[in-house]
Design a protein around this nucleic acid. Structure first.
Lengths: 211, 211
DNA sequence: AGCGTTGGGTACCAGCACTATCTACGGTAG
DNA sequence: CTACCGTAGATAGTGCTGGTACCCAACGCT
């Protein structure tokens, strides 16, 4: 299809499509002659991906670039690629950041024994815990245990539902799942708070609170 | 304390403190004479709050303003205040946004029966689900049920641990908990993925962040 | 041949969150 | 008394991000 149709189908403004082409986020179309290029379904999908990562996952374009690079390249080392991609997701972590992460380590122990203590997620957790603590919302051991149990259960579900097959698809699935399910879970948690508050307030009893 | 000490204790640059004062995020100090004001512990706490909401909860200053307004004002209707404050948290939702939210409603049914179908969180959930779907990561009913169960359990824990007493404290706790625990949970989920990935098959490999 | 579309480029812009500088005064040390 | 540092208050400018606008010349379809 021509660029005008790509614009029409995705709803992304022409100027923005050109900008993404310039920035290398969107691969160039197949050139037919000097003044015409044709685009395919993969361009439609790529635009959807860029917009989803930017608007929903809150990823700056530089991060989008990292993620699509990982997805594009047939990776020799899937695990390293995955690490790079997930580390590109917000919140940003300084490159030279190294532990120890005292608060995060205590919480991580509740999650499991197979956690890399140097990973970006540890730094993110440490920052989040420190911020909560700084306004008097420190996380008690019971809260950590409760949250740990439930995120672990969700992670197990996720792991059980990663598509089998070549590692490229799996990596894409994991990266996008990490980025795009986080807002889903956050919104669901807000709704759950609503539900709990209103069933308590309304006199309805829900006494099956665990952990 | 004088403004120089406030700067020193919080680590926030003087120019930034002045900016927050100008913007009304930080209440003015007690003026003693025309060229000197004194600040107290509440200013230290407020600065920590502003930085936590901005840096960790990713809240633009306009949103910080809304949240601190709710926390400051003794509210005649706690529930309405709470709603306003939580709606100010990201992701932003257009004011004129109204349902229906087809994807979100299906998921919300898994969470509970006491959900306000017009709340901001419904719009946020709808957007997050649509974004995931647009890149081929639509949420299956099983996944929705799994996530719903676990976020609900976490919400019940949260509700059981809101401090009793005057409603002001409770509102502050709920708003800040919503905003500041989300990144905690997101980071914990990433760590849980690591733990699951490494305890299954891939024994010993790093699932996040190259060294 | 005429006309709209395209590629390619440069320039410009808006929002956000600061940051820098200036003025003027006032409390204090010497 | 005088010098000087700290402070309040105001205005202007900066750096970054993510576009948006406009222009021009070359196509290529009819």
């Amino acid at each position: 299809m021509r660029i005008s149709e790509l614009v029409e189908r995705t709803g992304v403004p022409l100027a923005t499509v050109k900008y993404y082409l310039r920035e290398g986020l969107l691969p160039p179309g197949r050139a037919v002659g000097a003044k015409l290029s044709l685009y395919g379904e993969e361009h439609v999908r790529r635009l959807a991906l860029i917009r989803a990562l930017r608007d929903t996952a809150n990823l700056p374009l530089a991060g989008v670039r990292t993620v699509v690079a990982v997805i594009d390249e047939p990776s020799p080392d899937p695990v390293a690629s995955l690490g790079r991609a997930v580390a590109a997701l917000p919140p940003a972590v300084a490159d030279d950041r190294r532990g120890p992460y005292p608060r995060a380590e205590a919480v991580a122990r509740e999650i499991g024994e197979h956690i890399d203590p140097g990973s970006a997620a540890m730094a993110q957790l440490e920052d989040a815990l420190a911020a909560a603590e700084s306004v008097g919302l420190g996380i008690s051991p019971e809260r950590a245990r409760c949250y740990a149990r439930h995120v672990h259960a969700m992670a197990e579900f996720d792991a059980a539902h990663v598509p089998a097959g070549e590692s490229g698809r799996a990596i894409e699935h994991v990266v996008l799942g990490t980025a795009l399910y986080e807002p889903v879970i956050a919104a669901m948690r807000r709704l759950a708070h609503q539900d709990v508050a209103r069933s308590r307030g309304a006199g309805g009893v829900r006494a099956d609170a665990e952990g």
